[in-house]
Amino acid sequence: MTLDRTTTSPRLIDRAPELSGAEMAAQLVPPRQFSHATLDNYRPDSEFPSQAEAVDAVRGFLTSWKPSGGLFSRRKAAPPKPGIYLDGGFGVGKTHLLAALWHNAPGRKYFGTFIEYTALIGALGYRDAVQLLRGATLIAIDEFELDDPGDTMMMTRLLGELVESGSRIAATSNTPPNALGEGRFAASDFLREIQSLADRFRTLRIDGHDYRRRDVQGSARGYSDSELDGIPSQQPGVVTDDSFTEVLRHLATIHPSRYVKLVDGLDGVIWRDVSVIHSQTDALRLVAFVDRLYDAQVPIFSSGVPLDQVFAPEMMSGGYRKKYLRAISRMIALTIGQDQ
């Protein structure tokens, strides 16, 4: 029965996308769900004043592009800091604010996740990547990560060169809601890593609840295999149908920089027989892939272990816990969102 199904349904594992450096650069724009993000349509939670304060701070950062004082000004204002860093739990609207900033910034600008920038460097080489990005008015980095010292120091060097050439930098970090102290520590780590830029960044703490759970509580929705059989006829468009094990195996054959093309044109993915992941490498690949699914708002339909329980307990207490919590939050949204 499974063999007949998979031979008549498109499969994710049959996709083998290629992505050039130029195509990667063209993809450095906000995800489509933030294509209309503005500071006016950001909805601050009144219980957390830091959210409204962050909106004001971003507005202030934007005014730094406007000329002030004029030729006959009595005194020059202190030069604005070239960087702004939004630190806080996931789901508090940091990406929305970052996208709103990007939309309002003048000139040539780029928006991408930390992994997208490191992938660009990997594809083009460091020097060519610097040459491509040099002259941009704004480099927006979503989900800046400190997990890999090598990548972090490479980005440190890149940002240093770009700031020296006149670019401004805006970045976000992710912190789980129950680890706010860790969020402040992560921010100080980031600023320490960028050393010479540290005193030029303004760091803002944004508190709050994950907006994806403000109105909807609970676990990721699961299906029986018989229910999954009917999904392709109920969900319009292209819906791939694979076993979860095959998906993990296939992700290992594709560089994460190409995951954006892997989800291109999809209207849903079916994962059968989801099981708990014990391999850290598999887990991190899944996190990267879920990010791309979330950016493209591709629904997930799955059977087996609920997706909010897919990471083994020992992983949820390890160094990548923040990433796994973010992925869980997004998978819940992509499954529960089918009923919204």
Rank of each mutant, 00 (worst) to 15 (best):
T7A: 13
S9P: 06
A16W: 07
S20E: 05
A22Y: 01
A25T: 01
A25V: 00
A26T: 12
R43Q: 15
D45V: 06
A52P: 01
D56W: 06
L62M: 11
T63I: 10
S64E: 10
G69M: 10
G70W: 04
K76L: 14
P82C: 10
L86H: 06
V92G: 09
T95A: 05
H96N: 05
L101I: 06
F111K: 05
F111G: 02
G112F: 01
I115F: 14
E116S: 05
G125N: 01
Y126F: 12
D128K: 01
L132I: 00
G135E: 00
E143P: 07
I169S: 02
N174G: 09
N178I: 04
E182M: 10
F185D: 03
A187I: 11
D189R: 13
R192S: 15
T203L: 08
G208T: 11
H209T: 13
H209F: 11
R212D: 10
R213Y: 12
V216D: 15
Y223H: 13
D225Q: 11
D225N: 15
L228V: 10
S233D: 10
D241S: 12
D241W: 14
L248A: 07
A252T: 11
V274R: 05
L286P: 01
V287M: 03
L293K: 14
V305E: 15
V310Q: 10
E314W: 07
S317K: 08
G318W: 06
Y320C: 12
L325H: 15
S329I: 03
I332Q: 11
A333C: 13
